[in-house]
Simulated scan of single mutants.
Amino acid sequence: MFYFRPSQGRGQARFGWLNSKHTFSFGHYYDPKHMGFSALRVINDDIVRPGAGFDTHGHRDMEIISYILTGAIEHCDSEGNRFVVPAGEVQRMSAGTGITHSEYNHSKSQNLRFLQIWIQPNRRGIKPDYEQRSIAQIGKMTPLVTADGRGQSLSIQQDANLYRLQLTCGETISLDTLERPGYLHVIEGATGVNGRHRLSAGDGLGLFKERIQLESSAEGFTALWFDLPAT
């Protein structure tokens, strides 16, 4: 099964202070053909103007991951966590029984850009929890958020794993989803898929019962790879 989500087909939200592209239905954007993939519910590509951000709001029973691309997020929540999350770091917040938080662009002069990711948990009603970390790339595929918190990765309340995939010019990698679904979200660069199709920044590809090979283009390739439960 292939699920292709081209960048230009994503939903959009513009509020002056925020320019957001939605891979799946979110907020005022609704499309019954794009409601998520396995336990992956949200990938929003958010650009926030200097000094602006999301006022205090609540979440419940959701695993929320922020992957900072440029700038830094100023995070504050009802559990007493007050942190700045700079570009290159990963943040995971388990909403559990309920949590409120605010997220602002820490800079007064530069835009903030980050990916807001929601994954449905496999346990409801847990105690809210928070983690953030800078995780260096090791090899082609580096775990960022995992079910067992292995290595330097953050942990998550779901049988799911999130990796950062990086390829240099001409490098290849095979992705196997014969047993479990997977979803690829391209951050930058481009890749060929099985020597035919091309994926570029913002494109997404969901797979199940498939095996594919990616080959990086000349400019290199960076993506997030989601290993997801078969639901």
Rank of each mutant, 00 (worst) to 15 (best):
M141L: 14
Q120G: 11
V90K: 01
N122Q: 14
D148E: 09
R180F: 13
F114Q: 04
S155P: 11
G96C: 03
P121V: 05
I119K: 01
P143L: 04
S155N: 02
S94K: 02
Q158V: 05
R180E: 11
Y130M: 02
Q116P: 10
N111R: 05
E179G: 12
T177H: 10
V145G: 02
T172S: 15
V90T: 04
I126Y: 10
T100H: 10
I173A: 07
N111S: 08
Y130V: 02
N122T: 15
Q166E: 06
L167A: 05
H101C: 03
K127Y: 08
R164C: 01
T100C: 08
Q158P: 04
E103C: 09
R164T: 02
E179R: 15
F114H: 02
I138G: 08
E131P: 12
S94I: 04
W118A: 00
I126R: 12
S94V: 05
K127G: 09
S109F: 13
R124Q: 15
L167T: 03
E171F: 05
D129F: 12
G98F: 13
S94P: 03
L178K: 08
N161W: 00
S134C: 06
I135L: 02
R123I: 11
L112A: 03
T146N: 08
E103S: 05
F114L: 09
N111C: 07
L115A: 09
L162N: 01
T100P: 07
N111D: 10
I119Q: 04
R180W: 09
G96P: 07
D148F: 06
G125S: 11
S153Y: 00
P121M: 04
S174K: 14
S107F: 07
S107A: 08
C169N: 13
H101A: 07
T100A: 06
Q137Y: 02
F114K: 06
S134T: 08
S94N: 03
L154G: 05
Q110T: 12
S94A: 14
Y163P: 13
S174F: 13
Q91H: 02
S109P: 07
Q116T: 12
T168I: 13
Q157K: 10
Q110S: 11
S155A: 10
L175N: 13
D148T: 08
Q152N: 12
Q158Y: 03
H106D: 15
P121E: 02
I173N: 08
E171C: 05
G139N: 09
A136H: 11
I119C: 04
L154E: 01
G139H: 09
Y130D: 02
I119V: 09
R150D: 05
D159W: 05
D129H: 12
S107R: 11
F114Y: 11
F114G: 07
I138M: 04
